[in-house]
């Protein structure tokens, strides 16, 4: 016969197991109630903040736009106050060093970049996280597809962020795919 030893948990009886299980379930239920309560009071605000941020982002890549129209999943047309088309905005994703980089690319009627903004990324803090840096993104402005590539590889005019070639390349690939989509749409 094996001796019951409560110290290291062997030979416990079934009543113990049930009490333990019920207690654990209780703790988890309290946790779930707290989380669903907090979620119910924050959900709407978080959704609003994200929507606001997204529209602010659209305005960022086509400055002076007055109104936006969604014409396709991830494609928006930006109108001026007089109703003429100022440009098209593409929401694209590109694989970065750490997960996906989401960005908005504003393209004018000539197929050149108006502006690029990085909406969301999970790149390494201090290095790849500089993909949303103004100085890096400014380089894309006014460029056509042939100019968008890494300068040090001779494939374009874009200087990579130091220490973050992969992240820089991810942005370049995303911008190129946006221009390609623009070409297909015409």
């Amino acid at each position: 016969m094996k001796k019951t030893n409560h110290m290291d948990g062997v030979g416990v009886n079934s009543k113990d197991i049930i009490i333990t299980g019920v207690k654990l379930m209780f703790i988890v239920m309290v946790s779930v109630s707290i989380l669903s309560y907090v979620n119910s009071i924050t959900e709407e605000r978080i959704a609003n903040i994200e929507k606001e941020r997204f529209e602010r982002g659209l305005r960022e890549v086509v400055p002076l736009a007055y109104d936006f129209e969604k014409i396709d999943e991830n494609v928006f047309v930006a109108y001026s106050k007089g109703g003429s088309i100022r440009g098209k905005i593409y929401f694209v994703e590109s694989k970065g060093y750490n997960g996906v980089i989401e960005m908005l690319v504003g393209i004018n009627s000539g197929g050149r970049i108006i502006k690029v903004s990085v909406v969301k990324h999970m790149e390494t803090p201090g290095l790849g996280s500089n993909v949303d840096d103004e100085d890096f993104l400014k380089q894309f402005e006014g460029k056509s597809i042939e100019q968008i590539g890494l300068a040090k590889k001779g494939s374009g005019d874009i200087d990579a962020i130091s220490g973050a070639t992969t992240s820089s390349n991810a942005v370049i690939n995303g911008v190129r795919s946006a221009i390609e989509m623009w070409g297909d749409d015409r």
Partner: peptide, 24 residues
């Protein structure tokens, strides 16, 4: 016997609450 899982539930609940509260 279930102290570690219980503490993990407590900690992750707190972290999620902090995360949602900061976001809002």
């Amino acid at each position: 016997k279930i102290r570690i899982p219980s503490y993990i539930v407590v900690i992750s609940t707190l972290v999620t609450v902090v995360d949602m509260a900061l976001a809002a």
